[in-house]
């Protein structure tokens, strides 16, 4: 028989057992490790963090639905689209000053994104601590390609949102700049010459789609609402919903690029 040493891998440093006392006639061990001195509490616990992720995710999804519907108004013409943007800023007036509801929404959204990322990062770090030594060989059995895009997909979405805000909200990277109407900014932003912007949007939207493909039913599961037949339904629902959302969003830049909207 041959035996060759293949390769080395670092292993977890495991605390050595207490130095073994000499066998003595009176030896008794301390009681087995007991309950924790300090319990993690809701936000410290993995389940709690997941719940935060699910709730904030739901807020973000709600925003996306509204945002997509608003975007689709572009097909009703410039006036309709611009007045919608205007309405966003003036809604609630005169009961409250201009932009206040929008600002509230922006704060909620920002908080949601921050909390969402906080829980994602802290769970990811926990996970890597829970498996300090990686497998030499590993094969997924759940076929979870989508699942594996969640973490880096989220980061891509974040980068996209930053670009997107600079582009269409602040106009910093938009050819028309901040002073143009939203309609003009959209049309200019996705102009055929700037095909790469559209391409970037499409890629980012694909990521959003994948993120929601898993994230949607996962959120229900996390909140304890997805058992049994309900989960199979939610699974299909997540697929249909995220596809619809992506198509709804993609329609706008594509329409601009091919000249349907100009």
């Amino acid at each position: 028989m041959t035996s060759t040493i293949d390769r080395g891998l670092a292993t977890t440093p495991v605390p050595r057992r207490d130095a073994p006392p000499k066998p003595s006639a009176r030896r008794t061990k301390p009681p087995a490790p007991r309950g924790p001195a300090r319990r993690p509490g809701l936000f410290g616990s993995t389940n709690g963090k997941k719940a935060v992720m699910a709730v904030t995710g739901a807020v973000l999804v709600a925003f996306l639905i509204g945002h997509m519907l608003g975007n689709l108004k572009i097909f009703l013409g410039a006036a309709s689209f611009n007045s919608y943007a205007e309405w966003l800023r003036t809604v609630g007036e005169p009961a409250v000053p201009a932009r206040s509801l929008l600002t509230v929404a922006e704060i909620v959204l920002t908080a949601a994104v921050v909390l969402h990322m906080w829980s994602a990062v802290s769970l990811a770090r926990r996970a890597s601590k829970a498996r300090p030594v990686k497998y030499a060989k590993r094969r997924s059995q759940a076929g979870g390609y989508v699942v594996r895009t969640m973490r880096y997909g989220g980061v891509i979405i974040l980068l996209f949102v930053i670009w997107h805000l600079l582009d269409l909200t602040f106009g910093a990277v938009n050819p028309k700049g901040f002073d143009a109407t939203p309609y003009d900014r959209v049309v200019a932003g996705f102009a055929p010459a700037r095909w790469w912007v559209t391409a970037f949007y499409v890629v980012a939207l694909a990521m959003v789609g994948l993120h929601l493909r898993h994230g949607l039913w996962s959120a229900f599961q996390t909140l304890g609402l997805a058992a049994g037949r309900r989960r199979r339904f939610l699974d299909v629902f997540a697929a249909v919903f995220s596809a619809a959302l992506v198509l709804g969003f993609v329609a706008v830049p594509v329409a601009v690029m091919i000249g349907v909207v100009k």
């Binding site: 389940n47 769970l123 601590k129 039913w217 599961q221 909140l223 989960r231």
Partner: peptide, 29 residues
């Protein structure tokens, strides 16, 4: 020191007793 579940479903796929993800739903609830 166990990690948190992000509903990847690998566990139930290898479970020799086929324990269903439904139990995790129940636990979360």
């Amino acid at each position: 020191g166990f990690g948190g579940c992000t509903n990847t479903g690998e566990c139930t796929a290898v479970c020799p007793k086929g324990i269903s993800l439904d139990v995790i739903t129940q636990m979360n609830r």
